[in-house]
């Protein structure tokens, strides 16, 4: 089997050559620095190349969107980051942004416009589902046949932005055996990482939120827990380990499941 190296297009290089990609692919901090989540970014990048989507990344020019700062109350830092990012987007004449992280998606789509940054923001699950509907992305349930899959709604795709159907449509195409958790969609339980909780110890309580949510997932009996957010992934993967179930139960991102099924 032949393999070809993927050269990731970087915005500054393309721009220097007078080219403009259709999408800015916003990798996000977890995609850049979290070893587990890097694999998700790689999988999604392969799918982008496979689908022949015109994109580029900012690379070293990418910086934090300001989301954790904003939700922790540091509006000053958020706006500094946002204004800086908007300046870069505008310099590269960015019109469309693809995000994988729901927090980045939410802040670009809903909050940057208040600071003058108005873009068409697309979550990767929306893009993938659109390609699926157009027939450009062909998925078969061969690889995962008979394996049950459940899906954990990230708060910032689901409740925050009403993206509930796309991930389910994709997962239904990948597996004939999709099961819902008890709390799902609008009523899905948070993984515990949002609002900058990811970066601090939880307040005193009698349980960790990620364990409560992992129990929801385990109760379905699914062998695969699909996620669509880097922080949810950290939390649920930890939860599975905490429950000593990592041998039999895997936590994959939707992009990874697609890349595996396409054998990219």
């Amino acid at each position: 089997m032949d393999r070809k190296k993927i050269e990731i297009p970087v915005m500054a290089d393309l721009f220097a050559r007078g080219k403009k990609p259709e999408f800015l692919f916003w990798v996000g901090c977890a995609g850049a620095f979290d070893d587990r989540y890097k694999k998700v970014v790689k999988a999604f990048t392969k799918i982008l190349v496979h689908l022949d989507v015109s994109f580029a990344v900012l690379g070293k020019e990418e910086s934090c969107t300001g989301d954790p700062a904003r939700r922790a109350g540091n509006e000053m830092l958020y706006q500094m980051q946002a204004l800086r990012n908007i300046e870069i987007f505008n310099a590269y004449e960015v019109k469309k942004i693809i995000t994988i992280c729901p927090h980045c998606y939410n802040i670009f789509r809903n909050e940057y416009p208040d600071l003058g940054g108005k873009y068409e923001v697309v979550s990767y699950v929306q893009l993938l589902n659109a390609k699926l509907e157009e027939g450009k992305l062909k998925l078969s349930s061969e690889l995962f046949s008979g394996i049950s899959v459940t899906y954990h709604d990230p708060c910032y795709l689901g409740r925050a932005n009403n993206i509930f159907d796309e991930p389910r449509l994709i997962l239904n195409s990948l597996t004939g055996n999709f099961v819902e958790m008890r709390r799902n969609r609008r009523f899905a339980l948070c993984c515990g990482a949002g609002g900058a909780q990811m970066f601090k110890e939880a307040e005193k309580g009698d349980k960790e939120v990620f364990i409560e949510r992992t129990e929801d997932a385990l109760r379905t009996g699914a062998k695969i827990i699909a996620t669509a957010c880097p922080f949810c992934m950290t939390m649920l993967t930890d939860g599975i380990k905490y429950k000593n179930r990592e041998e039999e139960i895997k936590n994959w991102d939707i992009a990874e499941l697609i890349a595996q099924s396409l054998d990219l």
Binding site: M1, K46, L264
Partner: peptide, 29 residues
């Protein structure tokens, strides 16, 4: 994390120079 975001552009203490390391040796069939 505030000071990391301010100094490194990420909530973690990584250098911005390393932002593209994930893309090294990426291959597709």
């Amino acid at each position: 994390i505030f000071s990391n975001i301010e100094n490194n552009g990420a909530p973690w203490q990584f250098s911005n120079e390393d932002r593209l390391l994930w893309a090294d040796n990426l291959e597709i069939k």
